[in-house]
Amino acid sequence: MAVSSEIVLRVEDLHKRYGNEEVLKGVSFTVRQGEALAIIGPSGTGKSTLLRCINRLTEPDRGRIFLEETEITSAHIDINKIRQQIGFVFQDFNLFAHLTALDNVRLGLMKVKGLSKREATERAMHELARVGLAEKAHAYPAQLSGGQQQRVSIARALAMDPKVMLFDEPTSALDPELIGEVLQVMQELAEEGMTMIVVTHEMGFARSVCDEVIFMEKGVIVEQGPPEQVFLNPQQPRTRQFLSKISELYGGVR
């Protein structure tokens, strides 16, 4: 699906420091409607912190973030209202352990969005079907495989009808053979035109599914561009180094 010119998310000069360590040193970028943006880079370079700053699960020290026209870093904003519009998928799923798959998806709809139980159930079943798990609606998280749990967590985020979805290394905690089913769901989302930011080590996914790639290291954006450029013709030596290391490990970028 085509990426429109309308900007959904704008990040300006984001800074974050933990004690003496500056994790984000001024990060700026924009995401357009329907765009799938991959953020790649070595571990510990602030990619997850960046995502968490976007819905303010982590408070940035400096910089501004806009969701469409709204400045969500403003002190006067009701952040709970904003978070409803930003889907978040965690590395380790974080499903609510005491609730079935259906209730995991339904809870936010009922308690945050105020939908009736009937409406919420309908919506939740629709989302579970979308990730291919309608028949697991009544299973508890412990009864699901990692891949299934992650798909439920994607359904949980999708159900809130977000303007943008943030994925924080969604396949890093999965067995290799379960990664595919999660990437498949994400690819379908991207094709349906969902705006998404994906922090990932899955270079194949970044290259074939995403519209734009950011290579981040040590709290700054080193290189940014369309996947063909970043992967096939990286401009920065550091990007080249990182990518060759990756292809050494995983047998090349598909």
């Binding site: 819905n55 209202k81 930003i86 978040f88 352990a97 809870l107 945050v112 967590s153 809130m160």
Partner: peptide
């Protein structure tokens, strides 16, 4: 696990 609390807050709770 505190991750569940993060997930709840991320939903807007």
């Amino acid at each position: 696990k505190p991750g569940q609390l993060l997930a709840a807050r991320a939903l807007g709770m």
